[in-house]
Design a protein around this nucleic acid. Structure first.
Lengths: 227, 227
DNA sequence: TCGTGACCCAAAAAACGAAACTGGTCATAC
DNA sequence: GTATGACCAGTTTCGTTTTTTGGGTCACGA
């Protein structure tokens, strides 16, 4: 394992537990077994470290999701992709914090104008993705991609946030919830003749493009636009 | 219009605009055209006033929702009820703030251990409601009421919260979003032979019981349980 | 040449005392 | 008998000063 990955492992463990603001660079260094100066040989700043951490987390999440979808015979439908999100998010509290923009974890990083999170958020590819799924016959033509994309965002937001609004005993197992949501999506959106493999191909390509974009964003923070 | 309603109208206007914490009792009194002492003839405390305001808002919201569902020939299905939520929530920023637990509006009231909001939240009737809809043949039997209830809570949470996570231009019209959600729900959950009128009758009864319960909760704050 | 950790200094946090605020009360007036 | 608004007392806010913090740097040693 490279020293850079050791540093990112240490950063992830501390930031997930204490939050970005309460984690000092010196603590990350100590946890990684290197000096503070060594951190700055790899990362231009604390924020650049966090950017790199999120890129790595998103790559791993994307790979896990793709694997789960590939392994599922019906994974290539909208519902199938959603059903497999849990397998990807599982064991990734950083991804969860990123998706729900949890201030306890992300703290002031949330408001950094040139942080990766802020920059990546401005570009939504979800609606284009739905349009591509329609093009290969995996989503019915009689729905607006923008509306479908928004409903899926709502579900994602609700999946992460609603659990905090209710007593734990009222929340059913996450897998059962995702199963039902997958069924709801497929019952209305997926034509019976849809080819799961075609949907998987679309997801593979979109994920690959998304990761290229994320790396590019992380490399060029100075080109960030002000909101 | 009773003086109590005048006071509540004034309180609603100010609290929705400035938030609970930034609204003084003296300002509510001035807006209602009465003295501060008169406020305390009607309400035991500022918090009791807020409790009463929420009870009244929930009653009006429930009536509006019921009206919308009654007027819709397909309003008695799960999807139909959801589709008509907008008509009920429309023009009710206080209900919206209550459902999303908006700290800008509700402020310290959110954390009041004996506030109505906190007490009402502990009792969820949604799962029982779904079970009753199953009993009258308006929801398929092959789904768990608890899971359906949770998914609907997620959708509600996402409906209110997701809009704050995205640039406004990426959010489609609310009515189109609700229409699609209604379709998703009915496609999977509603049997083709479901009787819309039977569903409406269930909703009427549950809403009536819910309002009785809310009034009871507002009357007996001293019996609140600590969380 | 690279890694280190003492150091710098701008920013943040804490402490303090004074001033302002406001929920709730009740003596007084109508 | 009921409504009022001056008043009380606890809480909050504010401005200033002092102390602490920690991101980032770089002279030095291996």
């Amino acid at each position: 394992m490279s020293r850079e990955d050791q540093i990112l492992d240490a950063a992830e463990a501390l930031i997930v537990h204490y939050g970005y603001d309460k984690t000092r660079v010196s603590e990350i260094a100590a946890e990684a077994g290197v000096s503070k100066g060594a951190i700055y040989l790899h990362f231009q700043s604390k924020q650049a470290l966090m950017d790199g951490l999120l890129v790595r987390a998103m790559e791993r999440y994307g790979e896990a999701w793709l694997e789960a979808v590939e392994a599922d015979p019906r994974g290539g439908t909208i519902g199938g992709m959603y059903r497999n999100v849990l397998k990807a998010v599982k064991n990734s509290p950083l991804i969860e914090a990123m998706m729900s923009q949890d201030p306890r974890v992300l703290g002031s990083y949330l408001h950094a104008p040139d942080g990766l999170l802020r920059r990546a958020q401005m570009r939504s590819m979800r609606a284009e993705f739905i349009a591509e799924m329609q093009a290969v016959g995996c989503v019915r033509d009689d729905v607006s991609p923008a509306v479908v994309a928004h409903v899926m965002d709502m579900l994602g937001y609700g999946l992460l946030g609603a659990g905090e609004m209710k007593p734990r005993e009222q929340i059913p197992p996450m897998e059962k919830t995702l199963e039902l949501i997958g069924e709801l999506l497929d019952a209305r959106l997926t034509p019976p003749e849809a080819q799961s493999d075609a949907g998987k191909a679309v997801l593979r390509r979109v994920m690959s493009e998304g990761q290229d974009m994320m790396r590019e964003l992380a490399r060029s923070p100075d080109e960030a636009e002000e909101r």
